[in-house]
Structures are given as structure tokens and as C-alpha cells.
Amino acid sequence: MSSPRVLVLYYSTYGHIETMANKVAEGAKRAGATVDVRRVPELVPEEIAQKNHFKLDQSAPVANPEDLVNYDAIILGAPTRFGRLPSQMANFLDQTGGLWFKGALIGKVGAAFTSTGSQHGGQETTLFSLLTNLLHHGMVITGLPYSFQGQMAINEVEGGTPYGASTIAGPDGSRAVSTTEGEGASFLGEHVAKLTQRLVK
């Protein structure tokens, strides 16, 4: 088959998920995929976003729900909000009802990545809340396999779960994505691209 088309679709408040999205894209490209990185629209008024130090200077173009049909794989990324996906991503996915009705995403490959403020801040429940949307669309879901050995480490606090790549931002958002977490995101992108090559004809 020709090079699989992969969409990395994310929402990032402070830049952690933006960083992870680019790492995911690097991994998918390494596996030979054609990759687009897109973000969902910000719903918070600009004045409030600036006051709360949101990262508004993100280079990824804003996506349109109808664009999803153009890809063989879709990898969603979003931070946690009380253990679930944020309203910005939910709002975007709520607009894909027409695609669901037509079965437009059935058989495409899907995966997810996230960030939380603390080690136990809801990474796995947030990943599940993202993946549930893809399952309803009839997509083929994958997580972050344990062949990525970085998620087995216990010598320091790290993100990474079998349900998707993740990072820990810290309570005040000051912790940067670690090397291992970035490698996990890249591994996820490469894994999805390789899986897509096998499944999509």
C-alpha cells in the first residue's frame, strides 16, 4: 500500500500535549507515514486564556471534523480534566456525529496520549475517555505496548501507560516532558503507523 496517512489531533493548554503531539508525529514519520498535526479550537475567551497563561502561539493548524475521513489513523491527545477529556476536545468530537452516522471512520486505526498534573491525576481514565469516542466510531484501537520498555521503569516518576503515552506536567505545569515520556510518544506514533500499514489496504 502507499504511505498511510496519520492525523495527530490534539488540544494543549500549556504546551505539554503540543510537545507530545510533535513526538508522536516524529515516530509515525519514522515508520514511513504521511503525518499531519492539527489542533482543536480553543473555547476559552482569549482574555481569560492570556490571564491564565495558556499557550496560544501553537503552530499547528486548527482541524475541521470533516477532515478526519482523509486519514487512515487518528491519534488523539489531550490533558486531563478531572479524570476525563477536556471540553475543547469533547466539543470537537461531538461534531463528528455525521461521520458516525455514515460509518466514515470504521476500520481506521486509533490511539491516544495525555498529560496530568500528578502521577495519579487521571491518566488512564482520561485515555479511556478519549478512546471511547474512537470505539464508537468503529475504529481499531491500540495502546502503548509493553515493548516500549520505558514505561516499566520505577527509578523516577514517569508517565506512560499500556493505554497510551502520557506525561506529568506537575501541579503548576512547570515540569517539562521527560526524555522517556517523549520516547514513549514517539514509540506510540511509530507503532500506530506500522499497525496501519498492516491493517489498511
Rank of each mutant, 00 (worst) to 15 (best):
I74M: 00
D72S: 02
L93F: 15
F82T: 04
L93R: 07
A73I: 03
G103K: 01
K108M: 10
L76V: 11
G107D: 02
V69W: 02
A90P: 04
W100T: 05
L99Y: 08
Q119E: 15
L85E: 11
F113L: 10
Y71G: 00
K108P: 11
D94S: 11
S87C: 03
I75N: 02
F113G: 13
Q95D: 05
G103N: 05
V109H: 01
V62L: 08
K108G: 08
F113H: 10
F113S: 09
A112N: 05
N64H: 15
V69T: 14
D72F: 01
Q95H: 08
A78K: 08
R81C: 05
F82I: 01
I74D: 00
F101D: 14
L93H: 10
Q88C: 03
D72G: 02
S118A: 12
R81Q: 13
P86T: 11
F82L: 04
Q119L: 14
N64A: 15
F101V: 09
L93A: 08
L99S: 13
A63L: 13
D94I: 00
S118K: 07
A73K: 06
T80W: 12
F82G: 03
M89A: 10
N64Q: 15
G77F: 04
A104T: 06
T96F: 11
Y71L: 00
D67E: 15
G103W: 01
A78L: 02
F82R: 05
E66R: 15
P79T: 00
G107Y: 04
N64E: 15
Q119N: 10
